[in-house]
Computed example of a mutant assay.
Amino acid sequence: MSNKHVPLKARKVSFAWEDTPLHWVPGDPFTTHTINVLHLLLPAGERWFVHVYQQVLPYIRDERLREDVIGFIGQEAMHSRAHDEVLPHLRDQGLDPTLADGRAGFRDFHRRGRQGLLPSTGAITRSIPGYLSRAYHPSRECSTEQAVAYLATSPAAVAASAAVKPQEGAA
């Protein structure tokens, strides 16, 4: 993996949800809705990261670290907004995007994990100690450079970029 420093810069992303079907994982409503739950859970954590890092920002003296923290704050703020944007679409589809009244059980998660649609219960269980280790660093997963390169060419990024270009020309 490359040790090249890649500055974190928040990308303004927005998605057009109106043409997304209710069950966007074809033939599998359970997996669709399991992944949809991330739109409910992640924004709170991302807003918490923003809050915590804004509190510590005045104490950071290393300029490169400060720039990275500012980029991370912007990235997490944008992520939380992007997740929040799907909630009206879920409501329009007749779903109540809250966590109350769910009927899915562990067996459903286990089955989808065996099918490769969600992380397997074994993989999740085995990964926990590594993430909790004092020696853990995200660079073990991949480099920031790899993540930025993927995000710049992902289907979502390409669609978002195409949607932004006509708006820029109108300004």
Results as ranks from 00 to 15, higher is better:
Arg126Tyr: 11
Ala10Phe: 04
Gly71Pro: 03
Ala159Asp: 05
His39Cys: 02
Ala156Asn: 06
Thr153Met: 03
Ser161Thr: 10
Val69Ile: 15
His23Asn: 14
Asn3Cys: 03
Glu141Gln: 14
Val148Pro: 02
Ser14Cys: 04
Gln146Ala: 12
Arg134Trp: 10
Gln146Met: 06
Arg11Gly: 02
His5Lys: 11
Arg134Met: 09
Val164Ile: 13
Ala10Glu: 02
His23Ile: 15
Thr32Arg: 10
Ala123Thr: 10
Arg111Tyr: 07
Pro166Lys: 02
Asn36Trp: 09
Ala162Ser: 09
His51Met: 13
Tyr59Lys: 11
Gly130Cys: 04
Arg107Ala: 12
Arg134Glu: 14
Ala156Phe: 00
Leu87Met: 10
Ala104Glu: 11
Ala82Phe: 03
Tyr136Pro: 01
His33Met: 15
Ala152Leu: 10
Leu40Phe: 06
Leu87Cys: 05
Gly169Lys: 15
Pro26Ala: 08
Gly113Glu: 03
Ser14Trp: 08
His33Cys: 15
Met78Ser: 12
His51Leu: 08
Asp62Glu: 11
Phe72Gln: 04
Gln167Ile: 06
Leu65Gln: 10
Met78Asp: 11
Glu18Val: 07
Val50Asp: 02
Ser120Gly: 11
Leu57Glu: 08
Tyr136Lys: 00
Gly45Cys: 10
Ser127Phe: 11
Ala159Asn: 06
His5Cys: 03
Thr31His: 11
Leu118Gly: 01
Leu118Cys: 05
Tyr131Asp: 01
Ser139Arg: 13
Phe109Cys: 13
Leu151Pro: 04
Phe109Trp: 15
Glu46Tyr: 00
Val69Gln: 00
His51Ile: 05
His5Glu: 01
Gln115Glu: 15
Leu132Ser: 06
